[in-house]
Design a protein around this nucleic acid. Sequence first.
DNA 1: GCAAGGTC
Length: 855
Amino acid sequence: MKSVLMVAEKPSLAASLANILSNGRNSTRKGSNNACSVHEWSGNFRNENVHFKMTSVCGHVMTLDFVGKYNSWDKVDPVELFSCPTEKKEATAKLRMPAYLAQEAKGCDYLVLWLDCDKEGENICFEVMNSVSRIIRNVFSDSVTYRAHFSAITEKDVKHAMANLGHPNENEAKSVDARQELDLRIGCAFTRFQTKFFQGRYGDLDSSLISYGPCQTPTLGFCVKRHDDIQTFKPESFWYLQMYAGNPEVALEWARGRVFKKEIAMMFLNKVKESKEAKVESVSSKELYKGRPQALNTVELMKAASAGLGLGPHTAMQIAEKLYTQGYISYPRTETTQYPANFDLMGVVKILQNSSEFGEEARNIANDFNPPRKGVDCGDHPPITPMKLGNRSDFDNDAWRIYDYICRHFLGTISRDLKYKSTTATLKVGMESFSCTTSVLLDPGFTRVMTWQAFGKNESNPPFVEGEMVAINDVKMIESQTGPPDYLTESELISLMEKHGIGTDASIPVHINNICQRNYVTIASGRKLIPTTLGIVLVHGYQKIDAELVLPTMRSEVEKMLNLIARGSADYKSVLRHAVEIFRLKFLYFVQNISHMDGLFEVSFSPLAESGKAHSRCGKCRRYMKYIQTKPARLHCSHCDETYSLPNGGNVRVYRELKCPLDDFELLAFSSGTKGRSYPLCPYCYNHPPFRDMPRNSGCNMCSHPNCAHSLYTLGISSCVECESGVLVLDCTSAPSSWKLCCNRCDVIINVFKNATKVQVDEGRCDCGAQMVNVTYKSEKTKFKDGSEEKTGCIFCSPDFSHLVEKHRAIVSRPAIVNVRGRGRGGGPGGKSRGTRGRAKQPKDKMAQLAAYFV
DNA sequence: GCAAGGTC
C-alpha cells in the first residue's frame, strides 16, 4: 500500500485536519522531536487505497543568516553585509525539524502540503520539500507533491481542498526568500553600523543595541511623530456661543461650532442678543444603533487588552496562547472576523450558560439569539472564541480578565445592537441656529454582557414643542483654546501598524516589545507610548539624513516589489538585486551623513570620556579606566581611547588589584548578585581572547592559561552536571566568606565550604573524574566532623565533604530541564580540547546522583 | 549582540 505524507504548519492544525479527513478515525503518536504529532489512517487517494500520515512543522523550518565569518562585528565592515554570502540554517536547532520530516517521509510516495495559505506558508512548503528531497523520490514533481488550498478549517472546506489539490507556488515562496534576505541585510547593516558608531562615542545611551529594522523603526516613527505633534502644537483661541432656554433650562449648542476671531463671535453674540425669544423650528427623534462587535481576531484582542485591561500585546498574547493550550479558547492568532458557516454558535452559548459570571447573559442570548455581523474570512483560522467554561478561580487575575473578555465579546457578537432614541431640538434666533440633543436608551443589546460599553446616562427629552416661541434665558460667548493631542496609546499604535501593513498579527507585539526593550519608548499610565530621548534623536536623525528610512511606506514599497516576484511578473534575482542595491546606496549615504544624526546625539548625551567613574587600571598606560555602568556596560580608557565591553546584567568590581599575567590589565570580579554566578575576568582578554579555544566575552573561567592562578586550567573541577560542554570552575572571587563552583557555560552553581579560609584545587583526581580539592578551616571554626582543620578530597564523593556542598541554580536562569537518563556526554569533543588537561571528565554515576538533586 | 517571519 502506498503512503501519503501530509504536513501542516503547526501541530494543532495537523490534529484538526487529520480529524476532519479521517472522519475522526485516526491514531496518534508523538513525533521523535517531541514537538509534533503524527496522525495516521487509511483512506483513498487518487483512486488508490493508501496509508495517510498527517504531521506538521512548527512554523518556518529554516532561517536565513550570514555565513559564519560575517557574524563578527569587529572584522566585517557593515557595508559588506549587502553583498556577502548568506545561508539557510535550521530555524530552531532543538526541534531537528529537517531530520524529523525526513524520518517521517521514509516509505512515503506522495507529499501533500497543508501549510497556511499565505506567502509564508508557500515558502514553508519548499522548506518541507527540501527537507524530504532525499527520501521521497521526485519530490519536486507535480505528480508526487500536492498543495491543499483551504480558506477555513471546516469539514466542507478541508474536504474540498483534498478533492481539488493543486501545487505549491514557487514564485510566492521566492518572494518570501527575497523578503528574508532584504530584512537581514538591511537590518543588520544599519544596526551594526549605528550601534558601533554611537556606542563608541557616548556613555549614557542606556541601550545595548541601537537597532534598525524595516518594521521596528517605522513603529518607533509613529510614536515620535505624535511626540513632535505635541511639542510643536500651538494652542489657538476660539470662541463660541451658548444659549440657555427652556424649562427645565438646557444649554444649546451653536450651529456654527467655533470661530477663530473674537470680533466675529462678538458680532453674532450682539445679533442674537437683540432677540428675547427663539423659535423652536423642529423637534425630531430617531432611533440609533451602536453596533454589536464583529467576531474577535488577534489585533482586536490586543487592542482591547491594552486599552481596556492595561495588558500589553506581548503579555496578552502569552496569556491567550496559554488559554489556548489549556483548551479554554480557540487558536488566538487569526485575522478572520467571520465565523465559519457551520460554526456551532449555540453550542458555545450553552457552554457559557453555567458560568457564575456571565451565565445569565448567556441564557438570555440563548432565548434571543441574533445572528452575528458579517466579517472578513482571511482563510487562516476561525475567530477567537471560548471552547470550554472556566471559573475565576481557575486562572490568575490577568488570565481571567482575558478569558472573561473573550467570552463576553463572543456573547456580544450574537446579541442585538444597542438601540437608543436620539431627540434633537433646533431653535432659531434670526439667522442663527442652536440645538440640543438628548438620548434615551431603548435596548442595551450587547452592552448587557459587554458592560464596559454601557450607555451612559438616560436623559429626558428636550423641553420644547415644535413651532412654539421660547424665552431666551441667556446667551454667552465662551472663549476656549485648542489643546494638543495626547501621546499615542498602544491601542492606537496597533491600529496604525495594521493600517500601514507594518508587521503581522503575530509580529506586532514583537515590534512593540522591541522598541521598549531598546529603550526607544517607555510605557506610561494608560499604556501611552512616550518616546525616550534616544528614540526621538534617532527618528529625527533619520529624518535629517534620509526620511524614507523611517516612513511606514518603506515597508509597503518593498512589499510591492516583492509582489512582482510573487505574481511571477518579475524575476526573483533581478528584483532582489535591485532592492539590495537601493538600500546599499541608502546605507552608504547614511554613513556619509551620520554627522547630521550625531549632531543631535551630541546635545543629548555625554561623550564616553566624560562618562562613568574611575575603576581599574589599563594594562597599556597604567591609568585608571572609567567604568560605564549603563547598558552596555564597558570600561573606557580615555588616554588610550579604547573601550572594553563588560558582561551586562550584573556588577563588576576590582578583584583584589590582581593583574592578568598576559596583558597587565587589572582583573575584575563579575557577579550577578549574591545567589547568581560569578567569575573573575580580564577586561582585555574578555574583548580580545588570548587563546584560540577561548571564546570572546568570557572570563578567566574559560581561559586556558597553563599556570595563571585564575584560569580554567588551574581552577576547573569537573564537567558540568547539567550542560553538555560546561566545566565547573572554583570561584574564589568572594572568598573566604563564600566559595562556589560555577559552570562556565550554564547557570549551575554549587556552594561549597562556607567560611573555609582556603580552598585549593589539588593535583590529584578522584575516581569519579573530578579534581580533588584541599580545604582548610580555622581550628575553632572547622566544619569537619572529626575536628580536623584541613582535608583533601573529592567534592562529590568524599563523605567528609558531603554536608558542606549545597547545590542550586543561579537566580537568573532558564527553566531547569533535567534529563538525567539522556545525558550521554562521556567527555565528548568539548571537554578536553578546551584545554582542561583531561581533568573535566564526566564523573560516573556520582554525577548522576548529583544531577538528581536538581530535579 | 543584528531583521522579520513562522510557532512551542
